[in-house]
Design a binder for these strands. Structure first.
Lengths: 252, 252
DNA sequence: CCGCCACCTTGATCCACGTCAACACGGCCG
DNA sequence: CGGCCGTGTTGACGTGGATCAAGGTGGCGG
């Protein structure tokens, strides 16, 4: 099963955020909960809406920002998928994470004041760009936005720690698939029909495994009836059993 | 070389933050940079100083907060050392991090609104307690404090990702020692004379190694003349060489 | 003082996963 | 069309570090 076929399949039900308007803003956007959560005055919402800058046209392999670029904005993925990665001195890649529509990228750049990693498009990608100084200023006037930022940052700390444990390949992969399903579901997409935007190599790299191991484990999962694999299209056939495997990681 | 001997040795040059005052606040405190950085008006500084609550008297093994406790405050270590850890369903411990004087604990609890881990004293410990709602409110009036919080959160994301790579035992341990030295140095303590507050088991657990491996690697480092080991007292004899070992991790 | 216990060290064995190698597939381009 | 390349799969083999086991040390309580 080939690569381009899969690519096409990914695009079909493209997880794209709607454009929203000043009252609803982007419905799948990172700040959706702030805006739709009520209690947010329309003036501030208007300001948030004005603040954002839509950037699109990235294609597979394009970089949204690079390691060392001066930090001045955080990004929310609008459509497509983005990976963050760093490349060490020997040229080896280290994938830090994948970012789906509605998720924020660049939060780890606030402290060093320079992006500590590259953000690379895994497909056609559109993003929202938030000037960080402007966002921070707005946050002082809008506690709901400040809190949402604190929350997102806090969550990322937890997520980063998830992978750090010494888990088996099976546990890692199970947790990865379940986690991906949940994140899709959060944005209103089917939970058990995954269209992976990333290659086996990227997954392996992210999970700190060899690409061959990822292949083998997926095979084994399929043989056990836990999932159906068809290239980059994965269906979770037995969610409870898969979750059971992932429990050591997911139940923290 | 015994355990209690080491404990005593740790206490001697106890890394305790001074009490500060309303103009200087705690000099080694988490918000030291905010306060001493100028541009902070005295009224707000006064408020920050009022906000904090000093809590002490923790002894080795005491818990500052527990997994599942409702989140309402973040803590700054004033003296001693604290580990954060979680205990999985099978009762196995997973050490998330060590916190030295001046460092913040509990930032990963903002999002779940409950502490996702235990914070356990590794020695006699004193902390500053900051009510989070009060701190967040203050942050809306004091952009410098807001920014400092954003920074701390952002930094923790990066730190959490450091360990996640698939590094060798040697690399991990070298990076651990160098990192510890740097953090001590930040607070004005000697960089190459480390008094470990934590057991080999804790270090191993934190680095995702077996305790036996930690012993063996430390032995090997000593045989190579990189460090001097005497129980929990470690002297870095060859910083440059040790750093070279840790480079794949530390130079990100 | 003795016995227990927590911590640390060292050696022997084992195994999960990485590495190496070979091959299959489809896309793309000349 | 044919060659090439990126991606994915599968098998054979090697190894870093976990695990198991045994012993050493000092502190502390009885």
């Amino acid at each position: 099963m080939g690569q381009a076929t899969m690519q096409a399949r990914i695009q079909r039900p493209s997880p794209i955020a709607d454009d929203g308007n000043e009252q609803r803003f982007c419905s799948t956007c990172a700040f959706g909960s702030v805006c739709s959560g009520g209690g947010v005055d329309k003036i501030a919402l208007h300001e948030l809406h004005c603040l954002v800058e839509h950037v699109g046209g990235y294609r597979n392999g394009d970089t949204v920002f690079r390691t060392g670029d001066r930090f001045n904005a955080i990004y929310a993925v609008r459509s497509g998928a983005v990976k963050t990665r760093l490349v060490d001195l020997e040229g080896r890649e280290l994938v830090l994470g994948f970012h789906l529509p509605g998720e924020l990228v660049g939060l780890n750049a606030i402290d060093p004041e320079a992006y500590p990693c590259d953000a690379v498009a895994l497909s056609e990608v559109e993003v929202c760009r938030f000037s960080f100084p402007a966002l921070a200023t707005l946050a002082t006037r809008m506690p709901a936005i400040q809190l949402e930022l604190f929350r997102r940052l806090s969550r990322d700390i937890g997520n980063a720690a998830l992978l750090a444990g010494d888990y088996s390949a099976d546990e890692r992969l199970a947790a990865f698939l379940i986690g991906l399903g949940r994140r899709y579901a959060e944005r209103g997409f089917p939970m058990h029909t995954l269209n992976l935007a990333m290659s086996r190599g990227d997954i392996a790299n992210y999970l700190r495994l060899a690409a061959e191991t990822v292949s083998r484990v997926l095979r084994r999962f399929q043989d056990r009836g836990l999932i159906q694999v068809d290239g980059r299209h994965v269906t979770i056939a037995d969610p409870t059993e898969l979750f059971e495997l992932a429990r050591p990681i997911l139940s923290r």
